[in-house]
């Protein structure tokens, strides 16, 4: 399984995006995994639990949504969302080689918080009182 190396890439990408933000911590990582990506979600979560150790993703919650497979169906002349990892048009049952979605894996977004001390919105509340 290459979920471990994918997990490492996720950490690398997130750290790269936070290069200019040395003082934030990641609390949630949201991922979108295509049904045809070959990536197994539990294995990926397991891998992440290892490779996030001592990084700013340590302890972050991982939220995974699955991206369904979409194919272009030529007889229907339409883009169809298929069942599971199949490439069969659900309407006319024709297999398609033109896969429009479901092969990739994206980091959708991440939630950040200050690592220590009082979070910013609590300070704002304190200011008001």
């Amino acid at each position: 399984m290459h979920e471990l190396s994918i997990a490492r890439s996720i950490v690398r990408e997130v750290e790269a995006a936070l290069q200019d933000r040395p003082d934030v911590q990641v609390t949630v990582v949201r991922l979108r995994i295509g049904r045809l990506s070959g990536i197994v979600a539990p294995a990926l979560e397991f891998g992440l639990s290892f490779v996030t150790e001592a990084t700013r993703l340590d302890g972050a919650r991982i939220e995974i949504t699955e991206e369904p497979v979409a194919v272009w169906c030529s007889p229907c002349q339409a883009t169809r969302t298929t069942d599971g990892p199949s490439v069969l048009c659900p309407v006319c049952d024709t297999p398609s080689a033109d896969i429009r979605a479901g092969r990739g894996m994206q980091i959708v977004n991440i939630d950040l918080s200050e690592p220590t001390g009082v979070p910013r919105d609590l300070l704002e509340v304190a200011d008001v009182s």
């Binding site: 990408e13 894996m105 977004n109 939630d111 950040l112 979070p119």
Partner: peptide
């Protein structure tokens, strides 16, 4: 009304393909 638990300070949109480096 505020949550007793502080919400996340910020959500950062990445929309980054993890396999993009390769």
């Amino acid at each position: 009304c505020r949550d007793p638990e502080p919400g996340p300070a910020e959500t950062l949109v990445l929309e980054r393909n993890v396999l993009s480096a390769n």
